[in-house]
Protein backbone atom coordinates (compact mmCIF):
# COMPACT_ATOMS: atom_id res chain seq x y z
CA UNK A 1 0.00 0.00 0.00
CA UNK A 2 1.31 3.45 -0.88
CA UNK A 3 1.90 5.76 2.10
CA UNK A 4 2.73 9.47 1.95
CA UNK A 5 4.36 11.77 4.50
CA UNK A 6 6.09 8.91 6.32
CA UNK A 7 9.22 9.49 8.39
CA UNK A 8 11.27 7.63 5.78
CA UNK A 9 9.98 9.86 2.97
CA UNK A 10 10.48 13.08 4.99
CA UNK A 11 13.98 12.17 6.10
CA UNK A 12 14.71 10.73 2.66
CA UNK A 13 14.51 14.07 0.84
CA UNK A 14 17.11 15.50 3.22
CA UNK A 15 19.33 12.49 2.45
CA UNK A 16 19.10 13.42 -1.24
CA UNK A 17 20.22 17.00 -0.49
CA UNK A 18 23.44 15.86 1.19
CA UNK A 19 26.75 17.08 -0.16
CA UNK A 20 24.88 19.96 -1.72
CA UNK A 21 24.26 23.68 -1.24
CA UNK A 22 20.86 25.22 -0.46
CA UNK A 23 20.73 28.90 -1.40
CA UNK A 24 18.53 31.74 -0.18
CA UNK A 25 16.71 33.45 -3.06
CA UNK A 26 14.19 36.28 -3.17
CA UNK A 27 13.15 36.30 -6.85
CA UNK A 28 12.56 33.75 -9.65
CA UNK A 29 15.64 35.19 -11.41
CA UNK A 30 17.84 34.50 -8.39
CA UNK A 31 16.33 31.01 -8.10
CA UNK A 32 17.33 30.32 -11.71
CA UNK A 33 20.88 31.60 -11.08
CA UNK A 34 21.08 29.27 -8.06
CA UNK A 35 19.77 26.28 -10.04
CA UNK A 36 22.16 27.04 -12.89
CA UNK A 37 25.07 27.21 -10.43
CA UNK A 38 24.22 23.72 -9.16
CA UNK A 39 22.25 24.41 -5.95
CA UNK A 40 20.51 21.23 -4.72
CA UNK A 41 17.58 23.32 -3.43
CA UNK A 42 16.59 26.95 -2.86
CA UNK A 43 15.07 28.74 0.11
CA UNK A 44 12.35 31.13 -1.03
CA UNK A 45 12.38 34.37 0.98
CA UNK A 46 11.13 37.92 0.76
CA UNK A 47 14.44 39.25 2.11
CA UNK A 48 17.78 37.58 2.83
CA UNK A 49 18.85 37.58 6.51
CA UNK A 50 21.29 40.50 6.05
CA UNK A 51 18.41 42.66 4.81
CA UNK A 52 16.04 41.40 7.53
CA UNK A 53 18.69 42.46 10.03
CA UNK A 54 19.05 45.88 8.39
CA UNK A 55 15.29 46.47 8.08
CA UNK A 56 14.42 45.57 11.69
CA UNK A 57 10.77 45.28 12.72
CA UNK A 58 8.83 42.02 12.49
CA UNK A 59 10.03 39.47 9.92
CA UNK A 60 7.30 37.08 8.72
CA UNK A 61 6.69 34.27 6.23
CA UNK A 62 7.20 35.44 2.63
CA UNK A 63 4.22 36.58 0.54
CA UNK A 64 2.75 33.41 -1.08
CA UNK A 65 3.10 35.14 -4.48
CA UNK A 66 6.88 35.24 -4.05
CA UNK A 67 6.97 31.59 -2.99
CA UNK A 68 4.69 30.52 -5.84
CA UNK A 69 6.78 32.32 -8.47
CA UNK A 70 9.91 30.60 -7.22
CA UNK A 71 8.13 27.22 -7.14
CA UNK A 72 7.24 27.76 -10.79
CA UNK A 73 10.70 28.98 -11.82
CA UNK A 74 12.86 25.96 -10.91
CA UNK A 75 12.78 22.16 -10.98
CA UNK A 76 14.92 21.70 -7.85
CA UNK A 77 13.29 21.45 -4.38
CA UNK A 78 12.00 24.72 -2.92
CA UNK A 79 12.04 25.42 0.82
CA UNK A 80 10.42 28.31 2.67
CA UNK A 81 10.58 29.73 6.17
CA UNK A 82 7.84 30.06 8.78
CA UNK A 83 8.18 31.79 12.14
CA UNK A 84 9.00 29.67 15.20
CA UNK A 85 5.70 28.34 16.56
CA UNK A 86 3.60 29.79 13.71
CA UNK A 87 1.84 26.62 12.63
CA UNK A 88 -0.60 28.51 10.42
CA UNK A 89 2.22 29.94 8.31
CA UNK A 90 3.42 26.34 8.07
CA UNK A 91 -0.05 25.17 6.97
CA UNK A 92 -0.09 27.86 4.28
CA UNK A 93 3.37 26.89 3.01
CA UNK A 94 2.37 23.22 2.93
CA UNK A 95 -0.73 24.08 0.89
CA UNK A 96 1.45 25.97 -1.62
CA UNK A 97 3.40 22.76 -2.16
CA UNK A 98 6.83 23.77 -0.84
CA UNK A 99 9.13 20.77 -0.46
CA UNK A 100 10.56 21.62 2.97
CA UNK A 101 9.64 24.15 5.68
CA UNK A 102 12.34 25.87 7.73
CA UNK A 103 10.95 26.82 11.14
CA UNK A 104 13.46 29.58 11.40
CA UNK A 105 14.98 31.91 13.97
CA UNK A 106 15.74 34.30 11.10
CA UNK A 107 12.09 35.37 11.27
CA UNK A 108 10.59 36.94 14.40
CA UNK A 109 9.27 34.14 16.66
CA UNK A 110 5.48 33.87 16.93
CA UNK A 111 5.60 31.77 20.10
CA UNK A 112 8.14 32.24 22.87
CA UNK A 113 7.47 28.85 24.48
CA UNK A 114 6.54 26.29 21.87
CA UNK A 115 7.67 25.22 18.43
CA UNK A 116 5.40 23.85 15.69
CA UNK A 117 4.29 20.22 16.12
CA UNK A 118 6.01 19.08 12.96
CA UNK A 119 4.73 15.53 13.25
CA UNK A 120 1.29 16.86 12.32
CA UNK A 121 2.44 17.79 8.80
CA UNK A 122 2.99 15.83 5.61
CA UNK A 123 5.67 18.26 4.45
CA UNK A 124 9.05 17.78 6.18
CA UNK A 125 10.67 20.44 8.40
CA UNK A 126 14.24 21.61 8.99
CA UNK A 127 15.11 23.44 12.23
CA UNK A 128 18.13 25.27 13.61
CA UNK A 129 20.13 24.11 16.62
CA UNK A 130 23.13 25.30 18.61
CA UNK A 131 23.73 22.13 20.56
CA UNK A 132 22.70 18.49 20.70
CA UNK A 133 19.86 18.98 23.19
CA UNK A 134 18.24 21.61 20.99
CA UNK A 135 18.68 19.42 17.89
CA UNK A 136 17.07 16.42 19.59
CA UNK A 137 14.16 18.48 20.93
CA UNK A 138 13.42 19.61 17.37
CA UNK A 139 13.70 16.05 16.05
CA UNK A 140 11.38 14.96 18.86
CA UNK A 141 8.84 17.50 17.57
CA UNK A 142 9.18 15.98 14.11
CA UNK A 143 12.00 17.86 12.33
CA UNK A 144 13.41 15.55 9.63
CA UNK A 145 16.54 17.66 9.11
CA UNK A 146 18.72 19.85 11.35
CA UNK A 147 21.03 22.75 10.59
CA UNK A 148 23.33 24.74 12.81
CA UNK A 149 21.97 28.17 13.58
CA UNK A 150 25.22 30.06 13.25
CA UNK A 151 24.50 33.76 13.16
CA UNK A 152 22.47 34.51 10.02
CA UNK A 153 23.10 37.54 7.87
CA UNK A 154 26.57 38.26 9.23
CA UNK A 155 28.93 36.52 6.80
CA UNK A 156 30.90 35.57 9.92
CA UNK A 157 31.34 31.79 10.08
CA UNK A 158 32.46 31.71 13.74
CA UNK A 159 29.04 30.87 15.20
CA UNK A 160 28.34 28.08 12.69
CA UNK A 161 31.72 26.58 13.65
CA UNK A 162 30.92 26.92 17.35
CA UNK A 163 27.56 25.18 16.94
CA UNK A 164 28.84 22.38 14.70
CA UNK A 165 31.77 21.68 17.04
CA UNK A 166 29.41 21.70 20.01
CA UNK A 167 26.99 19.19 18.45
CA UNK A 168 29.79 16.92 17.26
CA UNK A 169 31.64 16.91 20.60
CA UNK A 170 28.41 16.22 22.49
CA UNK A 171 27.75 13.25 20.20
CA UNK A 172 31.27 11.91 20.81
CA UNK A 173 30.74 12.25 24.57
CA UNK A 174 27.43 10.35 24.43
CA UNK A 175 29.10 7.52 22.52
CA UNK A 176 31.45 6.96 25.44
CA UNK A 177 28.79 6.90 28.18
CA UNK A 178 27.67 3.57 29.65
CA UNK A 179 23.97 2.91 29.18
CA UNK A 180 23.04 3.72 32.79
CA UNK A 181 24.34 7.28 32.38
CA UNK A 182 22.26 8.09 29.31
CA UNK A 183 19.07 8.99 31.23
CA UNK A 184 20.86 11.65 33.26
CA UNK A 185 22.54 12.92 30.09
CA UNK A 186 19.09 13.22 28.49
CA UNK A 187 17.82 15.11 31.54
CA UNK A 188 20.77 17.50 31.55
CA UNK A 189 20.52 18.40 27.87
CA UNK A 190 16.72 18.47 27.89
CA UNK A 191 16.46 15.92 25.10
CA UNK A 192 14.10 12.95 24.58
CA UNK A 193 15.67 9.82 26.11
CA UNK A 194 14.98 7.54 23.11
CA UNK A 195 16.81 9.95 20.80
CA UNK A 196 19.76 10.23 23.19
CA UNK A 197 20.05 6.42 23.14
CA UNK A 198 19.83 6.41 19.35
CA UNK A 199 22.56 9.06 18.97
CA UNK A 200 24.84 7.17 21.41
CA UNK A 201 24.40 4.08 19.26
CA UNK A 202 24.67 5.72 15.81
CA UNK A 203 27.46 8.17 16.65
CA UNK A 204 25.63 10.85 14.68
CA UNK A 205 22.28 12.65 14.56
CA UNK A 206 19.45 10.39 13.40
CA UNK A 207 18.69 12.93 10.63
CA UNK A 208 20.74 14.90 8.12
CA UNK A 209 22.70 17.80 9.64
CA UNK A 210 23.55 20.87 7.51
CA UNK A 211 25.59 23.95 8.39
CA UNK A 212 24.06 27.41 8.21
CA UNK A 213 24.50 30.96 9.45
CA UNK A 214 27.45 33.01 8.25
CA UNK A 215 28.91 30.93 5.41
CA UNK A 216 30.24 33.32 2.75
CA UNK A 217 33.15 31.68 0.90
CA UNK A 218 34.04 28.29 -0.67
CA UNK A 219 36.59 27.84 2.15
CA UNK A 220 33.84 28.43 4.74
CA UNK A 221 31.72 25.72 3.12
CA UNK A 222 34.61 23.24 3.02
CA UNK A 223 35.49 24.07 6.64
CA UNK A 224 31.97 23.16 7.76
CA UNK A 225 32.04 19.96 5.70
CA UNK A 226 35.36 18.93 7.23
CA UNK A 227 33.89 19.59 10.68
CA UNK A 228 31.35 16.89 9.88
CA UNK A 229 28.18 18.47 8.48
CA UNK A 230 26.26 16.85 5.60
CA UNK A 231 25.74 19.93 3.43
CA UNK A 232 25.53 23.72 3.36
CA UNK A 233 22.95 26.50 3.56
CA UNK A 234 24.11 29.84 2.19
CA UNK A 235 21.87 32.77 3.03
CA UNK A 236 23.07 36.27 2.35
CA UNK A 237 26.55 35.06 1.31
CA UNK A 238 25.70 34.67 -2.38
CA UNK A 239 23.33 37.40 -3.45
CA UNK A 240 25.01 40.01 -1.23
CA UNK A 241 28.36 39.38 -2.93
CA UNK A 242 29.92 41.03 -5.98
CA UNK A 243 29.39 38.16 -8.46
CA UNK A 244 26.59 35.87 -7.20
CA UNK A 245 26.61 33.36 -10.12
CA UNK A 246 30.35 32.77 -9.88
CA UNK A 247 30.42 32.59 -6.10
CA UNK A 248 27.43 30.22 -6.03
CA UNK A 249 29.14 27.84 -8.43
CA UNK A 250 32.38 27.98 -6.45
CA UNK A 251 30.62 27.17 -3.17
CA UNK A 252 28.89 24.18 -4.83
CA UNK A 253 32.25 22.88 -6.11
CA UNK A 254 33.89 23.45 -2.72
CA UNK A 255 31.15 21.46 -0.99
CA UNK A 256 31.82 18.49 -3.31
CA UNK A 257 35.62 18.70 -3.11
CA UNK A 258 35.78 19.82 0.53
CA UNK A 259 38.75 17.53 1.24
CA UNK A 260 40.88 18.59 -1.72
CA UNK A 261 42.88 21.79 -0.97
CA UNK A 262 44.19 22.11 -4.54
CA UNK A 263 40.69 22.03 -5.93
CA UNK A 264 39.56 24.48 -3.23
CA UNK A 265 42.34 26.89 -4.23
CA UNK A 266 41.26 26.57 -7.85
CA UNK A 267 37.58 27.32 -7.22
CA UNK A 268 38.34 30.18 -4.80
CA UNK A 269 40.12 32.28 -7.46
CA UNK A 270 38.72 35.58 -8.78
CA UNK A 271 35.32 35.46 -7.13
CA UNK A 272 35.01 39.23 -6.72
CA UNK A 273 33.90 40.89 -3.51
CA UNK A 274 32.43 38.67 -0.78
CA UNK A 275 29.54 40.06 1.26
CA UNK A 276 30.81 42.78 3.57
CA UNK A 277 29.65 41.11 6.75
CA UNK A 278 29.30 42.00 10.40
CA UNK A 279 31.82 40.92 13.00
CA UNK A 280 29.87 38.86 15.52
CA UNK A 281 31.51 40.51 18.54
CA UNK A 282 30.09 43.86 17.47
CA UNK A 283 26.55 42.49 17.61
CA UNK A 284 24.42 43.33 20.66
CA UNK A 285 22.81 40.36 22.42
CA UNK A 286 19.34 41.52 21.42
CA UNK A 287 20.38 41.37 17.74
CA UNK A 288 21.56 37.77 17.90
CA UNK A 289 19.03 35.64 16.06
CA UNK A 290 20.51 32.40 17.38
CA UNK A 291 19.05 33.07 20.86
CA UNK A 292 15.57 32.47 19.39
CA UNK A 293 14.24 28.94 19.89
CA UNK A 294 13.51 26.94 23.03
Amino acid sequence: MAEQGTWKVKKGLAEMLKGGVIMDVTTPEQAKIAEEAGACAVMALERVPADIRAAGGVARMADPTVVQKILDAVTIPVMAKCRIGHFVEAQILESLGVDYIDESEVLTPADEQFHVNKNAFKVPFVCGARNLGEALRRIGEGAAMIRTKGEPGTGDVVEAVRHMRKVMSEIRKLQNLPEEELMSAAKEMGAPYNLVVEVAKLGRLPVVNFAAGGIATPADAALMMQLGCDGIFVGSGIFKSGDPAKRAKAIVAATTHYNDPQMLAEVSKDLGEPMVGINISSLADVDRMQERGW
Binding site: Q4, K8, V123
Partner: peptide
Protein backbone atom coordinates in the same frame (compact mmCIF):
# COMPACT_ATOMS: atom_id res chain seq x y z
CA UNK B 1 9.34 14.88 -10.63
CA UNK B 2 6.68 12.80 -12.33
CA UNK B 3 4.75 11.85 -9.19
CA UNK B 4 4.64 15.47 -7.96
CA UNK B 5 6.40 17.51 -5.29
CA UNK B 6 7.67 16.33 -1.89
CA UNK B 7 4.17 16.13 -0.31
CA UNK B 8 3.38 13.52 -3.00
CA UNK B 9 6.47 11.44 -2.21
CA UNK B 10 5.55 7.95 -1.00
CA UNK B 11 6.65 4.46 -0.09
CA UNK B 12 5.00 1.32 -1.39
CA UNK B 13 5.42 -2.44 -1.82
CA UNK B 14 6.83 -3.30 -5.21
CA UNK B 15 6.84 -6.57 -7.08
CA UNK B 16 10.20 -6.77 -8.83
CA UNK B 17 10.81 -9.14 -11.70
CA UNK B 18 13.34 -11.79 -10.70
CA UNK B 19 13.35 -11.03 -6.95
CA UNK B 20 10.77 -13.65 -6.00
CA UNK B 21 7.39 -13.34 -4.29
CA UNK B 22 8.54 -11.20 -1.35
CA UNK B 23 7.60 -7.56 -2.13
CA UNK B 24 10.27 -4.86 -2.04
CA UNK B 25 9.50 -1.80 0.12
CA UNK B 26 10.38 1.05 -2.22
CA UNK B 27 10.81 4.71 -1.24
CA UNK B 28 9.96 7.29 -3.94
CA UNK B 29 11.12 10.88 -3.31
CA UNK B 30 10.12 13.54 -5.84
Amino acid sequence: NAFGRQVDSFETDLHIEGLGQEPFRAVFIR
